[in-house]
């Protein structure tokens, strides 16, 4: 019963946010374009034959970077920035009165944008295949489903991390700079710019314990058919979600307590 109610709320929120997002098609197209860094990286890799050292063929590497682009498109999170803006503009107080955690609102917003973004991502992929016809492939259904799940899990991890950072807005006025700091390791270690296999040994020895390789490298490898450890990847993603969720709840409760105590 409660679950049902919850579902209905989320569904309505999704619908509203989706029509809202449709209004911003141009911006979303631009967003999609701004995600093409992986292709530039691919260009460096293949143009200098850098893949020789990691034993991945040109075709597999280009599939990897295409998938990295896709995974990034559907796991990008900006909740800190929305929340910071809302709290600066005093919108958080009305949200707190509503019988729904405001983060569900942002969650719906993100999902809605991902849906709107899908066609643009497809167009970019289409052009990619025109320039690299040899890299066309069709993943089998099971792998496709698994990689969609792992992309969603990657999105969840990033959403949780950013929500935790966003809650810091209750203490400091500008939480977005913390997010910008956290983005740096995400950028360099997640596999967006170079596949994690290519990292030197001294990094590879510890990186699989952090959440970073599971954000892009793992789902992208899975989808592109590159070698990867599926059971370890999925279980690590789930473990991180189980670690982060209680932390988010705790910090949310503490934050709202602080917020209401301040009375501002």
């Amino acid at each position: 019963m409660i679950f049902n109610l919850f579902n209905r709320k989320i569904f309505t929120l999704l619908k509203v946010q989706y029509s809202n997002m449709l209004e911003y098609r141009v911006e979303i197209a631009l967003w999609a374009i701004s995600g093409i860094i992986p292709f530039f990286m691919l260009n460096i890799w293949t143009n200098n034959n850098l893949n020789e050292s990691i034993n991945i063929s040109d075709v597999m590497l280009s599939r990897y970077f295409l998938c990295a682009f896709f995974v990034r498109q559907f796991s990008v999170v900006w909740v800190v920035f929305s929340f910071e803006e809302d709290s600066l503009m005093g919108k958080v107080s009305p949200y707190l009165i509503q019988p729904l955690n405001p983060f569900f609102r942002y969650f719906a917003q993100h999902l809605a944008e991902q849906i709107t973004r899908f066609p643009f991502a497809l167009i970019i992929a289409f052009f990619f295949f025109i320039f690299n016809p040899e890299s066309i492939w069709i993943p089998n259904l099971g792998i496709l489903l698994l990689s969609i799940v792992s992309t969603f899990l990657s999105f969840l991890i990033q959403f949780l991390i950013q929500s935790i950072v966003a809650c810091l807005c209750f203490w400091t006025e500008k939480a977005s700079s913390i997010e910008r700091m956290l983005f740096i390791p995400t950028l360099f270690l997640s596999g967006l710019l170079a596949p994690v296999v290519s990292f030197p040994e001294y990094v590879k020895s510890w990186i699989y314990l952090t959440p970073f390789p599971y954000l892009i490298d793992f789902p992208a490898n899975l989808l592109s058919g590159n070698e990867t450890n599926i059971s370890r990847g999925l279980s690590m993603q789930i473990i991180w979600i189980f670690l982060l969720f209680p932390l988010f709840k705790k910090i949310w409760i503490e934050g709202t307590k602080k917020y209401t105590a301040m009375g501002s």
Partner: peptide, 9 residues
């Protein structure tokens, strides 16, 4: 770090 990866080859 990224640059050093590129020069590994």
């Amino acid at each position: 770090f990224l640059l050093s990866i590129f020069f590994q080859n």
